[in-house]
C-alpha cells in the first residue's frame, strides 16, 4: 500500500515468517497474551489499562491493516489519550453500550512471534482469535467476532507492556454491531 509510512510502528505489513525464540520467552509472551485476553473478557478495565505503555496505539481498521491509520477512518484508532478517555468512559458505569458489560470469552490460537529484536525485546506477536459475546445490554443475543490480533510488546521496568494492538476482524468490511468492549 503506497500510503504506508515506512519505519513507523503502525501500518507496516508484519514480517511473513515466525522467528525462533527460546521456549521460556515464548511462554512468557503467550502468558501475556492470555492475561490481556482474560482482563478484556472480564471487563477489568483498570487492570487491562495497566498493561499498556504511555504511547499505546489501539487500532481496529476497516479492511486489512496495510495503510497509515492517519489517512482513513477506522472503527477504533486510539492514541494513548483517547484510549484513556475510552477507559474512563467505560469506568463511569453509565457507558450504556456496555452496561451491563457483555459476558465474553475469546480463544486465541495460531500464536506466532513475528519479531524479537533480541531476547529483551521489543516483540511483535500475532494470534488468531474468536471472541464470543452476549450483547446483554441490548439484544441479549450471541455475537461472534473472528479475527487476527497483532501485538507490539516491550519491556518496561522488566515487565512486558503492550505498545500497540491491531485487530483485523474477518468481517471488517461489513457493518459492525456495537464494539464498546475491549476487543
Amino acid at each position: 500500500m503506497s500510503g504506508a509510512k515506512q519505519g513507523s510502528q503502525v501500518g507496516q505489513a508484519p514480517p511473513p515468517a515466525a522467528v525462533q525464540v527460546s521456549e521460556t520467552l515464548r511462554r512468557e509472551l503467550e502468558a501475556f497474551l492470555f492475561l490481556e485476553a482474560r482482563l478484556a473478557d472480564e471487563s477489568r478495565y483498570a487492570e487491562w489499562e495497566a498493561l499498556v505503555t504511555d504511547d499505546m496505539h489501539y487500532w481496529v481498521p476497516r479492511g486489512p491493516a496495510d495503510h497509515d491509520p492517519a489517512e482513513r477512518l477506522a472503527y477504533i484508532n486510539d492514541n494513548r489519550a483517547r484510549l484513556a478517555t475510552r477507559i474512563r468512559q467505560l469506568s463511569t458505569g453509565h457507558r450504556w453500550a456496555q452496561t451491563p458489560p457483555s459476558p465474553m470469552r475469546r480463544i486465541l490460537g495460531n500464536i506466532e512471534v513475528l519479531e524479537a529484536r533480541d531476547e529483551a525485546g521489543p516483540y511483535t506477536v500475532a494470534a488468531n482469535f474468536v471472541l464470543f459475546e452476549v450483547a446483554a445490554q441490548s439484544t441479549g443475543e450471541l455475537r461472534t467476532w473472528p479475527g487476527r490480533a497483532t501485538y507490539r510488546l516491550r519491556r518496561s521496568d522488566g515487565r512486558l507492556r503492550m505498545a500497540q494492538k491491531i485487530v483485523e476482524l474477518v468481517t471488517s468490511q461489513l457493518p459492525q454491531s456495537s464494539m464498546a468492549f475491549l476487543l
Binding site: 477512518l73 484508532n77 450504556w96 450483547a135 445490554q137 441490548s138 441479549g140 457493518p175 464494539m179 476487543l183
Partner: peptide, 23 residues
C-alpha cells in the same frame, strides 16, 4: 472516529438505546 460508528464514544450508546427500543 470519536463520535460515530460501533466503537465510538457516542453512537455505540445510541445503538444500545435503539436496540433496547426494538426489544
Amino acid at each position: 472516529e470519536a463520535a460515530m460508528g460501533p466503537a465510538s464514544f457516542l453512537l455505540a450508546d445510541d445503538a444500545a438505546a435503539a436496540e433496547r427500543q426494538q426489544y
